[in-house]
Deep mutational scan, measured.
Amino acid sequence: HNLTITQGKLFFHYNPKLCLSEIHKMEEVSGTKGRQERNDIALKTNGDQASCENELLKFSYIRTSFDKILLRWEPYWPPDFRDLLGFMLFYKEAPYQNVTEFDGQDACGSNSWTVVDIDPPLRSNDPKSQNHPGWLMRGLKPWTQYAIFVKTLVTFSDERRTYGAKSDIIYVQTDATNPSVPLDPISVSNSSSQIILKWKPPSDPNGNITHYLVFWERQAEDSELFELDYCLKGLKLPSRTWSPPFESEDSQKHNQSEYEDSAGECCSCPKTDSQILKELEESSFRKTFEDYLHNVVFVPRKTSSGTGAEDPRPSRKRRSLGDVGNVTVAVPTVAAFPNTSSTSVPTSPEEHRPFEKVVNKESLVISGLRHFTGYRIELQACNQDTPEERCSVAAYVSARTMPEAKADDIVGPVTHEIFENNVVHLMWQEPKEPNGLIVLYEVSYRRYGDEELHLCVSRKHFALERGCRLRGLSPGNYSVRIRATSLAGNGSWTEPTYFYVTDYLDVPSNIA
């Protein structure tokens, strides 16, 4: 807008934040220059609390790290170098490059900038070799853009010569660093050979998330399962459950009422301010606690030095998902009996873990797994792929695949051998790939016309006998059925096997 004052003059007093240069501009645009008398524009009460600059400061050096910015700028000295009290560095987070010096300023003089007072450097006698002032900004957020400017702080001049310097606002972004852990990993099994893994992005990506790394490792069953005799009275049979499938998407929606109208769909109840505040506090606490764990609990591995020492970490090797089922080394339970199943799973520490690289999504279907087997899954978020990966501390989750139908069934015939004193040795093959492992066998036998009897055969007993022995049988026709019990439950009964026990007292003698 054009402003013209045809008559009258300007009068400025007691404006401590208004620089004289701005008042002189007002004289020019209003056409009143030359009308004012000496005392109409006070030299001592206008701009006496402001830094009124008329020179431009330029930054000469900028260096960044993930949490620091090192700045240096060209030296500046007023005509009387004693008038320079120091520099004021202003900075704040700036997602967009549209910041002005006066953003967030209120009537009390406060604003949204963080201000650092910096002492002037030592003055050199040689004007050509003056030290460049600077400042190291610490405690910054990774991968965050900051708006920065600097200006001088000078003393009051009796001659009211307006001098000083100020830089333009520059924008500097800190470097990326390792992201925080992925949030809320959930693993479920939808079949006997697959596990579905879902997660949420890290709360602090500290860069642009480029991919996720998912490692999985087959877990050995508890050692007590191999040692305890679950045929003993009072000892509860062990059981394991597989990871249940995901709930429906509708039930997972946030901010939804727990109660549904019987007449149909209901609208979600909005969260109160107290609920939102509580969630923010919980989120802040979780982030602080995660940072504490990362800094205190997890110790970084030592990389190899120039002395030739090897990095103890196993090298990563990509495998196809079809090879995942046989990740671990199978060892027989008892070496003397080769027909026992290889369900003991000690994992070799030198073995390469299978892994998958996930790009542009937060889910993965891990296939080719062994049925009813526990897996430990390790999830890392990465925001750099080359020249070397920059990934987060791992988040861990466990899951067990679903049982395989008929995996616990005894394959092959049940054979028998009759000894003296009416002892019958029953023999059968253990299931080759049971659900988890076989903890015991149930032997059901009966003599024709009598009630059915049951015998429990422990895992250890089966390994020693290759089956079991029935003792003290009365003469007669017998039928026997056997079924295995694994961590997933009972298998199917075998087809009945028949044998006849004679009275050993009636056996004919070869003595003449």
Results as ranks from 00 to 15, higher is better:
Val296Thr: 07
Ser398Asp: 02
Glu430Val: 09
Phe462Asn: 11
Val296Gln: 11
Gln256Met: 10
Arg471Lys: 08
Ser223Val: 12
Glu221Gly: 15
Val424Asn: 00
Val423His: 14
Pro300Gly: 05
Ser315Cys: 09
Tyr500Pro: 05
Asn360Met: 08
Arg353Ser: 14
Phe289Leu: 03
Ala395Asn: 06
Gly207His: 02
Gln429Gly: 15
Ser315Asp: 12
Ser315Lys: 13
Glu350Ser: 13
Cys267Trp: 01
Gly306Phe: 08
Cys269Glu: 10
Ala335His: 11
Val424Ala: 13
Val424Met: 11
Glu249Lys: 05
Gly467Phe: 06
Pro270Lys: 08
Glu451Gln: 14
Leu470Tyr: 02
Ala399Trp: 02
Asp409Ser: 12
Phe298Glu: 02
Tyr375Gly: 08
Pro434Trp: 00
Leu453Ser: 06
Asn208Glu: 05
Thr497Glu: 08
Glu217Asn: 13
Asp222Tyr: 06
Ala335Ile: 08
Asp222Trp: 13
Thr373Met: 10
Glu378His: 12
Cys468His: 06
Val331Asp: 13
Leu505Glu: 08
Asn208Trp: 13
Glu227Asn: 13
Cys468Asp: 02
Tyr259Ile: 05
Lys271Cys: 10
Gly489Cys: 08
Val397Leu: 15
Ala336Pro: 11
His425Trp: 08
Ser239Ile: 14
Arg286Ala: 05
Val457Asn: 00
Ala407Ile: 03
Ala488Tyr: 15
Ile209Asp: 07
Pro413His: 15
Trp493Pro: 01
Val397Ile: 06
His425Gly: 08
Leu505Val: 11
Phe226Met: 06
Ala407Met: 12
His211Arg: 15
Thr494Trp: 02
Pro354Asn: 13
Lys357Ala: 15
Phe337Glu: 10
Glu389Gly: 07
Asp222Met: 09
Pro434Cys: 03
Tyr396Ile: 03
Thr415Tyr: 08
Ser363Pro: 10
Cys391Tyr: 15
Phe215Ile: 13
Gln275Arg: 03
Phe462Pro: 03
Thr485Gly: 06
Glu389Ile: 13
Ser363Gly: 12
Asp273Gly: 07
Ser363Val: 11
Leu487Met: 05
Ala399Phe: 06
Leu470Ser: 01
Phe289Ile: 03
Arg466Ile: 08
Gln384Glu: 12
Pro238Lys: 03
Glu247Ala: 11
Val327Arg: 12
Gln256Arg: 07
Tyr230Met: 04
Val324Met: 12
Asp409Pro: 02
Leu321Gly: 11
Leu321Thr: 11
Leu426Asp: 08
Leu464Asn: 15
Leu321Phe: 06
Phe499Leu: 13
Val501Trp: 02
Gly207Ala: 07
Tyr230Trp: 08
Gly489Thr: 12
Arg301Met: 05
Cys456Met: 11
Phe462Tyr: 08
Lys287Ala: 02
Ser479Ile: 11
Leu453Phe: 05
Asp450Tyr: 14
Ser304Asn: 15
Tyr500Trp: 14
Ser304Tyr: 07
Pro403Gly: 03
Glu404Ser: 11
Lys302Thr: 02
Gly264Val: 12
Val296Lys: 15
Gln275Asp: 04
Ile410Val: 15
Gly234Pro: 09
Cys266Asp: 07
Pro300Cys: 06
Leu487Thr: 05
Asn435Ser: 10
Tyr230Lys: 04
Asn435Asp: 03
Glu362Pro: 08
Asp503Lys: 05
Trp242Gln: 08
Lys271Met: 10
Glu433Arg: 13
Gly449Asn: 08
Glu282Lys: 04
Arg471His: 10
Gly476Asn: 00
Phe355Leu: 11
Glu388Cys: 15
Ile482Gln: 07
Cys267Pro: 07
Glu279Asp: 04
Asp323Asn: 11
Gly491Phe: 02
Leu437Asn: 11
Gln429Ser: 14
Asp261Pro: 15
Lys357Tyr: 13
Gln380Ser: 09
Val358Trp: 02
Lys361Thr: 11
Gly489Asp: 03
Glu351Ala: 10
Pro312Asn: 09
Ser239Gly: 08
Ser341Asn: 14
Tyr441Cys: 00
Gly476Gln: 01
Pro403Tyr: 08
Val358Lys: 15
Met402Asp: 03
Ser262Trp: 08
Pro238Gly: 07
Thr347Met: 15
Ile366Ala: 04
Ile438Gln: 05
Glu290Asn: 02
Pro314Lys: 12
Asp408Phe: 00
Gly412Glu: 07
Pro354Lys: 08
Arg353Asn: 12
Glu389Asn: 14
Ile418Pro: 09
Leu293Val: 04
Asn295Ala: 03
Ser458His: 04
Glu420Gln: 15
His461Gly: 11
Ala399Ile: 06
Phe246Ile: 07
Gln275Ala: 07
Val329His: 05
Lys302Phe: 04
Val296Met: 12
Asp408Ser: 06
Lys278Val: 07
Pro403Met: 04
Leu369Thr: 08
Ser398Glu: 02
Leu455Gly: 09
Pro312Ser: 13
Cys269Pro: 04
Tyr498Glu: 05
Asp385Pro: 12
His371Asp: 08
Leu369Phe: 06
Pro238Val: 05
Ile418Leu: 11
Pro349Leu: 11
Leu237Arg: 13
Ser223Tyr: 09
Pro332Arg: 14
Gly325Met: 15
Leu232Lys: 13
Tyr445Gln: 04
Glu389Met: 15
Arg376Phe: 15
Met427Cys: 09
Pro238Glu: 03
Ser262Val: 13
Leu369His: 08
Ala263Glu: 13
Phe226Val: 06
His454Glu: 15
Leu232Ile: 13
Asp506Thr: 14
His294Arg: 01
Cys269Thr: 09
Cys468Glu: 01
Ser342Phe: 13
Lys432Phe: 08
His425Lys: 12
Ala220Asn: 13
Ala309Glu: 09
Gly436Thr: 13
Leu473His: 01
Leu228Arg: 10
Arg446His: 09
Ser479Thr: 14
Gly368Val: 06
Val414Ser: 02
Asn435Arg: 01
Phe499His: 01
Ser305Met: 10
Glu350Lys: 15
His294Lys: 02
Glu404His: 12
Trp242Thr: 06
Phe372Ile: 02
Thr307Phe: 07
Pro338Val: 13
Asn339Ser: 13
Lys287Ser: 04
Pro338Gln: 10
Thr288Pro: 03
Val439Leu: 13
Asp222Leu: 09
Asp291Leu: 03
Glu388Thr: 05
Pro431Glu: 00
Pro431Met: 01
Gly449Trp: 04
Lys233Val: 13
Glu290Leu: 05
Cys231Ser: 04
Gly322Arg: 04
Pro244Ala: 14
Pro431Tyr: 09
Pro314Glu: 14
Asp408Gly: 02
Tyr448Gly: 00
Arg471Cys: 11
Glu433Phe: 10
Pro314Gln: 15
Thr303Leu: 05
Phe298Ser: 02
Gln256His: 04
Glu362Ser: 08
Val329Asp: 15
Lys432Asn: 03
Ser341Phe: 12
Asp229Lys: 05
Val424Glu: 01
Glu258Pro: 14
Trp242Tyr: 02
Tyr375Arg: 01
Glu351Arg: 12
Tyr212Pro: 00
Thr494Phe: 00
Tyr445Ser: 05
Glu258Met: 05
Ile418Asn: 13
Glu265Gln: 15
His461Arg: 12
Pro346Val: 14
Glu221Asn: 08
Ala263Asn: 13
Lys361Pro: 07
Ile438Asp: 02
Ser474Asp: 04
Ser392Leu: 00
Glu249Met: 03
Arg240Ile: 15
Thr502Ser: 08
Val439Lys: 14
Ala394Ile: 15
Arg390Gln: 13
Asn421Gly: 10
Pro349Cys: 15
Leu225Asn: 04
His211Asp: 01
Thr333Asp: 12
Gly325Asn: 11
Arg318Gly: 03
Thr328Cys: 06
Leu437Ile: 11
Cys231Thr: 03
Tyr500Phe: 13
Ser486Tyr: 03
Leu237Trp: 14
Trp428Tyr: 05
Leu379Arg: 01
Pro332Tyr: 06
Glu362Asp: 15
Ser283Asn: 08
Trp493Cys: 00
Arg390Phe: 06
Ser203Ala: 04
Val299Gln: 08
Asn477Arg: 12
Asn326Ser: 14
Pro496Ala: 12
Thr343Gly: 11
Pro434Val: 11
Glu217Asp: 10
Asp503Pro: 13
Thr386His: 08
Thr494Ile: 02
Asp229Leu: 03
Glu389Thr: 10
Lys278Thr: 09
